[in-house]
């Protein structure tokens, strides 16, 4: 028996918004520790990894490890039937072929119950090696979304450069080019770009903006985002989900032909 209670539906709604454009179907792997999801997009360029700790949820139980095969679009639609503040319970019996959703209104005067059919999903699980990154940049998630959106109007790719001066995002297209630079300066006043850079080596890498745009759908989950880069390895983009867990995205770099 698996059962997880969220004080508000909004976390689950935001998690689904942050994953459904990359992944159609995914196994939600539930264990005594919590809920984990790992899935690649269909072109095998990016990967999303979600972790929610059971002991940080309103309540959680999972006696036997269980993989719940979920169509992300269907789950998104069912969660739209909940108000953001509804207490939300998701439940599945061992060997069940459905997941049950219960939404309770704030005043506890309305209860809705939905059942969603589960799927058998053959998923490939990738081992992600522990990586010491050359540069880790913490910045406002809103600012990151803005930069990705702005540079997407110029080109398909972004070149990210991190050095001791700061981080620069650059895009080139048929009609022109653009760059956005953020300075790393811990002594500046509050209200400035509020960016911290942990740097051991300068890096310069190219990435497809199309995928970064999908990643920025996670911005409502966290005020901050962390970008971790090393030469010739996938970029890691992480959004913390309060104390409950995180959503991490990995994106393979582009290489010059």
């Amino acid at each position: 028996m698996f059962e997880a209670t969220f004080n508000q539906a909004s976390i689950l709604k935001q998690v689904l918004e942050a994953t459904k454009d990359l992944v159609n179907d995914a196994n939600w792997d539930c264990s005594a520790e919590g809920i984990a999801l790992q899935a690649m997009d269909s072109s095998h360029v990016s990967l999303v990894s979600l972790s929610l700790r059971g002991d940080e949820l309103a309540s959680y139980r999972c006696e036997n490890q269980i993989s719940l095969g979920i169509n992300m679009n269907t789950m998104t639609k069912i969660l739209k039937c909940a108000e953001n503040n509804d207490r939300t319970i998701i439940r599945a019996d061992d060997d069940a072929d459905v997941m049950v959703f219960v939404f309770e209104s704030e005043g506890r005067d309305k209860t809705s119950k939905y059942e969603m059919k589960l799927m058998d999903i053959d998923s490939e699980h990738l081992g992600i090696p522990e990586q010491e990154y050359s540069a880790t940049v913490q910045m406002s998630s809103k600012e990151f979304s803005r930069i990705v959106r702005d540079l997407s109007t110029i080109g398909e790719n972004v070149e990210i450069t991190v050095d001791k001066e700061g981080i620069t995002f650059g895009a080139k297209g048929e009609s022109g080019s653009g760059t956005v630079s953020l300075k790393s300066n811990p002594s500046v006043d509050e209200g400035s770009s509020n960016i911290t850079i942990d740097l051991t080596d300068s890096v310069k890498l190219n990435f497809a903006l199309r995928y970064l745009t999908f990643f920025t759908k996670a911005a409502p989950l966290s005020d901050n985002v962390s970008l971790s880069l090393s030469a010739d390895v996938p970029l890691m983009v992480e959004y913390a989900i309060g104390d409950v867990g995180f959503i991490r995205y990995y994106l393979a770099p582009k290489i010059d032909d």
Partner: peptide
């Protein structure tokens, strides 16, 4: 133009 790498070149199937 840069060519897109495949993620599976970096991560191994487990």
């Amino acid at each position: 133009t840069p060519v897109q790498n495949d993620l599976q070149e970096f991560f191994t199937l487990v």
